[in-house]
Nucleic acid binder design. Structure first.
Length: 477
RNA sequence: GGGGCAGUGGUCUAGCUUGGUUAUGACACCAGCCUAGGGCGCUGGUGGUCCUGGGUUCAAAUCCCAGCUGCCCCA
């Protein structure tokens, strides 16, 4: 069983993070660098995420399918920017048993190429469009830098949606609609507020026309990309020879999107909400929303019987509840254990509660304890909703405090270099300027707001040329 | 890509500088007793490729080299 949290969140964020993720029994390291083990407690959060998102995707007509893990090099290389972007981090299969393969096979770093190879066979007429397909799978990118549980692994659990449309407008709308689903997921399920925007030229997906992104603010003034959605234009339909005949009997190249969210989003949630006692989970994602801890001293059997009544009542209400009646652990031990695991509500029940037909309810976020009558238990449901709302609100306020508009280059460089705060500033948007910013500060542009905004300054914060957009700058995981 | 730090029963660790008896302690785990409103207590017990491989040596957890894993810094 897990022990206490020794490393504080504020003193060393990553050590703290590794500690709570492992000790809460969500994930573990494996023998291979960058490949994590997802234990039941962690995997259940992913299952809940999958089920939420899957029904969102299906609500706009997207169907699930499954494409191969391995991609022949000739197919992966068809789109030039795409292969240039991914080549350094592709893992290759070169042997089949003892035999060297004639053509090496890439373990998918993403599936645009293998899927569009099929799409070119399936799409013949405007009647075949739109084609809306998603797959839940894992991909492998051979990260050479440091890897981190959930945040940057070599194998990533995710979904990738790949849609094909007749017009650019339809494609762009799809990319934005999905981005909106991601934003809803992060806020409604994980209580993680995000900023939506688009990526700069150098940060966008290899082969995309536009990459939309949702980014979360972290407690160390980093930003983390929680999901992306790409408008691919005709950049893939042309090299992959995906064509359809329109109503006028003319051959056209369709417009495509691809979009994905990974289990990193769960990691971001842990960073945003966790504290020195462990995880803090939104009731919407928590495997257990509520744990009952019996105080088994006087009238043990009656107390236990009462606990079971409470358990079944909560279960009837559709609440995910755990009654932990193990006698080998003390109540105090259990309180600490479920704090570590982030359970939103703890219900303590002993002789006192039995006699008064009450339950004592304690929240994870504020550790406030209150008394609730047995016949008022409907309020638990409200309490859970309040907790989620409060978590989102708190995180939103915290995010805002960490962002500042800036118009002095000197302060900009210092702020992002030392992660003092996240900077929003006017910017020229060119790859050269971004490269220089990265070299000097270690930070990059994280997003450019979607709506047209008034420029903070006429000139670029860094190079002083004419500014084109406002952008957020921070280091990232 | 370059550099640095770390790795000792399940967990955290002492020992390493200066090689030498049976590898230290705490927690966890198991048995029994005892307890119970924020990590109870007592007694006894199980558990070790000292990260892996090689080298130096009469002798390596300890010194040297390489690799693996984790973390940090620089490009």
């Amino acid at each position: 069983m897990a022990e206490g949290i020794e490393i504080k969140k504020e003193s060393d964020l990553i050590s703290w993070y590794n500690q709570v993720v492992v000790k809460s029994e969500m994930l573990d390291f494996s023998a291979v660098k960058g490949f994590a083990v997802y234990r039941p407690y962690g995997y259940e959060m992913w299952e809940r995420s999958v089920s939420y998102l899957d029904s969102k995707f299906k609500s706009v007509g997207v169907k699930n399918a499954y494409f191969p893990l391995l991609i022949p090099e000739s197919i992966l290389s068809k789109e030039k920017e795409h292969i240039a972007g991914f080549n350094p981090e592709v893992a290759w299969v070169t042997m089949g048993g003892d035999t060297k393969l004639d053509e090496r096979l890439a373990i998918r770093p993403t599936s645009e190429t293998i899927m569009y190879d099929s799409y070119s066979k399936w799409i013949k007429s405007y009647r075949d469009l739109p084609l809306l397909i998603n797959q839940w799978n894992t991909m492998v990118r051979w990260e050479t830098k440091e890897t981190r549980l959930l945040l940057r692994g070599r194998e990533v659990l995710w979904q990738e949606g790949h849609c094909v449309f007749r017009t650019n407008d339809e494609a762009d709308k799809n990319a934005r609609d999905i981005l909106n689903f991601y934003k809803q997921f992060l806020e409604e399920m994980l209580a993680v507020p995000v900023f939506a925007g688009r990526k700069s030229e150098s940060e966008k997906f290899a082969g995309a026309v536009t990459t939309y992104t949702v980014e979360a603010v972290l407690p160390n003034n980093f930003m983390s990309q929680a999901a992306t959605s790409h408008n691919l234009g005709q950049n893939f339909s042309k090299p992959f020879d995906i064509k359809f005949l329109d109503e006028k009997n003319e051959l056209q190249y369709p417009f495509q999107t691809s979009w994905g969210i990974s289990m990193r989003s769960i990691g971001v949630m842990l960073l945003v909400h966790g504290d020195n006692k462990g995880l803090v989970l939104s009731p919407h994602i928590a495997p257990y929303q509520c744990v009952i801890i019996p105080i088994l001293k006087d009238e043990k059997d009656k107390v236990l019987e009462y606990c079971k009544q409470i358990e079944s009542k909560l279960r009837e209400m559709g609440i995910r509840v755990l009654l932990d009646s193990r006698e080998e652990y003390s109540p105090g031990w259990k309180l600490n254990e479920y704090d570590l695991k982030g359970v939103p509500l703890k219900i303590q029940v002993g002789k006192r509660e039995l006699d008064s037909k009450n339950v004592s309810v304690k929240t994870r976020i504020s550790n406030e304890q209150s008394l609730l009558a047995f016949n008022e238990m409907d309020r638990i449901k409200e309490k859970l909703e309040e907790i989620h709302k409060k978590m989102l609100e708190n995180a939103r306020e915290d995010s805002k405090k960490r962002i500042r508009e800036e118009d002095s280059k000197e302060r900009f460089v210092k702020a992002v270099k030392d992660s003092l705060y996240i900077v929003k500033a006017s910017w020229c948007g060119t790859p050269e300027c971004e490269e220089n910013i990265k070299n000097e500060t270690g930070a990059t542009s994280r997003l450019i707001p979607l709506e047209d905004e008034q420029l903070i300054n006429e000139k670029c914060i860094f190079c002083g040329k004419d500014a084109k957009v406002n952008a957020y700058f921070a280091k990232s995981y």
